[in-house]
Nucleic acid binder design. Structure first.
Length: 427
RNA sequence: GGAGGUGUGGCCGAGUGGACAAUGGCAGCAGACUGUAAAUCUGCCGGGCAACGCCCUACGGAGGUUCGAAUCCUCCCGCCUCCA
C-alpha cells in the first residue's frame, strides 16, 4: 500500500502488490459487491437480529458456523428442513465456517491429528469427529453458497516449526477437501491459508493452496492475539501471493481501520463478531468514534447515536434511551445496538467501495485515523508502524485510484460464471 | 401488656470472641472483547496518607466484660411474629 515501503517479491501468481479493488462475488443466492463485510450469525442468526432486519441493514451475505450447527440442531435436521437458507429464513448468500476457528477457540475441548479434529462438545461433552471430507459434505448438505475447508487455526505465538508442521497438515486437509467437493448446488469452496506470522510460510502456503484451484482464498489464523503490525504485514504479503482473479477473504477481521488497510491490499471479504458483540456490551461505532453507551455521561443525552446513521435506533431514538435500555437490562437495548453497529459496518463498507471507485481512500483513512486513540477503532490504516494519524492522510491512496487500475483483476476465466462464486472487477 | 425474634457498608445479605474495613449478590465507576462456549469477562467500589504499608471512622444507640467485641452482658431505640 505504501509505494515506498519495501516488499517481498510477488508470489508466483501475482504480478505485483495487490491494490484495493471493487468486485462481485457471484453466488447462487445473489451477488455480493466487494469489498464486503459478512455479519456473523454463528448459530444461523446474528444474535438479536431477524433475517429481515439483517437484510434491511444492508447485509449482503451471512456467515454461520458448521461446528455449532452440526452439534445443534444437527446437519440432518437442517437438511430435512430444506437446507440452511430455508431453516434460517435468510435468503441471501450464506457462508459457513468449517470449525477450524473452534480448533483455536475451544482449545482444551479438542484434539487434532493428521486425519482431522476431535471435539468434545461444549454443550454436552459428546465426541465429534471433524474430517476435511466430512466438513465439506456437511456444508454441501446445508446448501451454503460458500463452504470453507477445515483448517487448523493456530494460537499466537507459536514457533516457526509448529507453524510449518501445522501448515503441512492443513494443506493436506485442503487437498482432501478439494477432492471431496462436488459443488452440485452451485456453491463454492474456499481454501484457508495459515502459517502464523511467518511471511515465507504464508507465501508458500498461498502458492500451494492456489495450485489446488479453490473458488476463493481466505487468510486465517489472524486476530488471535498477535500485534496489529504483524497482522497487517501478514495480510499484505499473503494477499500478494494469492491468485488475483479469485476472492480474497480475511477471516475474523475486524475493526474498520483494519478492514480498510486490508482492502487497500486487495482483500474482498471480511467477517467479524465485533460489531455484534460490542453492541451487546454497550460499545457503539459511530462516525465520531466509539461510544460506550453505558457511561453516565449519556444519561441525559438527547442526541441520536450517530446523526448520519439510518438505522432504526438512530433515526428516532436518543442516546439517553439506549443508555437506559442497556443499563436496565432490557433486551431491546442490545438489539437496537446490534442493528446500529451492523449498519455502521455495512455503511462503512459501502463508503469503502465508493472510495475505491473514486480513488478517495485516503480521505476515508484520514477520517478513521482521526478517532481518539483507544476508542476501539484500531490503529490508523495508513501506517502499521506508526500509531500516529497524520501519516496516513498524507500518503496517496495506495494504488487505489482510477489511475491505478489493477490489471490482475480483469477477465479471469471464471469471472463470468455464475455457477460458483467468482470475484471480478467492475466494468 | 406478655413471649420470642431481629437490626451489618447505597440496597439485599453472610459472618456470632482474635486471621474483619468485614464473604456473596445487586447497584455504581472503569476496562476488555477480532472466522462467537460471550446479553460475557476483568478491575475498583468507607475515608485519608510521605499508599506493596500505616492512620481514622464503622456492623441501631449508650454503657460493660475481655489482652482483644460486628460477635458476650445490661439498658435504650426501631422493626417483625405469636399470645392477650
Amino acid at each position: 500500500m505504501e509505494p515506498r515501503a519495501p516488499r517481498l517479491p510477488a508470489g508466483a501468481l501475482g504480478a505485483g502488490a495487490p491494490v484495493a479493488r471493487r468486485g462481485r462475488l457471484i453466488t447462487p443466492h445473489g451477488v455480493v459487491e466487494t469489498p464486503a463485510f459478512m455479519p456473523v450469525g454463528t448459530l444461523g442468526a446474528v444474535k438479536g437480529v431477524t433475517p429481515q432486519e439483517l437484510a434491511a441493514a444492508g447485509a449482503p451475505i451471512l456467515l454461520a458456523n458448521l461446528y455449532h450447527l452440526a452439534l445443534r440442531p444437527g446437519i440432518d435436521v437442517i437438511e430435512r428442513l430444506g437446507g440452511l437458507h430455508r431453516f434460517t429464513g435468510w435468503s441471501g448468500p450464506l457462508l459457513t465456517d468449517s470449525g477450524g476457528f473452534q480448533v483455536w477457540s475451544l482449545g482444551h475441548l479438542r484434539t487434532v491429528d493428521d486425519g482431522g479434529v476431535t471435539f468434545r462438545s461444549h454443550l454436552d461433552g459428546s465426541t465429534w469427529r471433524f474430517t476435511p471430507a466430512a466438513v465439506v459434505d456437511w456444508q454441501e448438505r446445508l446448501g451454503v453458497d460458500v463452504a470453507m475447508t477445515l483448517d487448523e487455526c493456530l494460537p499466537w505465538p507459536v514457533s516457526r516449526e509448529q507453524a510449518a508442521a501445522s501448515w503441512e497438515r492443513t494443506l493436506d486437509w485442503a487437498r482432501q477437501a478439494r477432492a471431496a467437493w462436488r459443488g452440485d448446488a452451485g456453491g463454492g469452496l474456499f481454501g484457508i491459508v495459515q502459517g502464523s506470522v511467518f511471511h515465507d510460510l504464508r507465501q508458500r502456503a498461498a502458492g500451494e493452496l492456489a495450485a489446488l484451484d479453490f473458488d476463493g482464498y481466505a487468510i486465517g489464523g489472524v486476530s488471535v492475539g498477535e500485534p496489529a503490525a504483524e497482522r497487517r504485514a501478514v495480510v499484505e504479503q499473503t494477499a500478494a501471493a494469492l491468485p488475483p482473479e479469485r476472492p480474497r477473504y480475511l477471516m475474523g477481521v475486524g475493526y474498520p481501520a483494519d478492514m480498510l488497510h486490508a482492502a487497500m491490499h486487495g482483500i474482498d471479504l471480511f467477517d467479524c463478531v465485533l460489531p455484534a458483540r460490542n453492541a451487546r456490551h454497550g460499545v457503539l461505532f459511530t462516525r465520531e468514534g466509539v461510544l460506550k453507551i453505558r457511561h453516565a455521561r449519556f444519561r441525559d443525552d438527547p442526541r441520536p447515536l450517530d446523526p448520519e446513521c439510518g438505522c432504526p435506533c438512530c433515526t428516532r431514538l436518543s442516546r439517553a434511551f439506549l443508555h437506559h435500555l442497556m443499563r436496565a437490562g432490557e433486551l431491546t437495548g442490545p438489539v437496537l445496538a446490534t442493528l446500529h453497529n451492523l449498519r455502521y459496518y455495512l455503511d462503512f463498507m459501502a463508503e469503502l467501495r465508493q472510495a475505491i471507485a473514486l480513488g478517495a481512500l485516503a480521505d476515508l483513512a484520514a477520517r478513521l485515523a482521526s478517532f481518539p486513540a483507544g476508542h476501539g477503532a484500531g490503529d490508523p490504516a495508513g501506517d502499521p508502524r506508526s500509531p500516529r494519524t497524520s501519516r496516513a492522510s498524507r500518503e496517496d491512496p495506495p494504488g487505489a485510484g482510477p489511475h491505478h487500475p489493477d490489471p490482475q483483476e480483469q477477465r479471469s476465466p471464471d469471472a463470468g460464471r455464475q455457477a460458483r462464486p467468482a470475484c471480478r472487477d467492475h466494468d
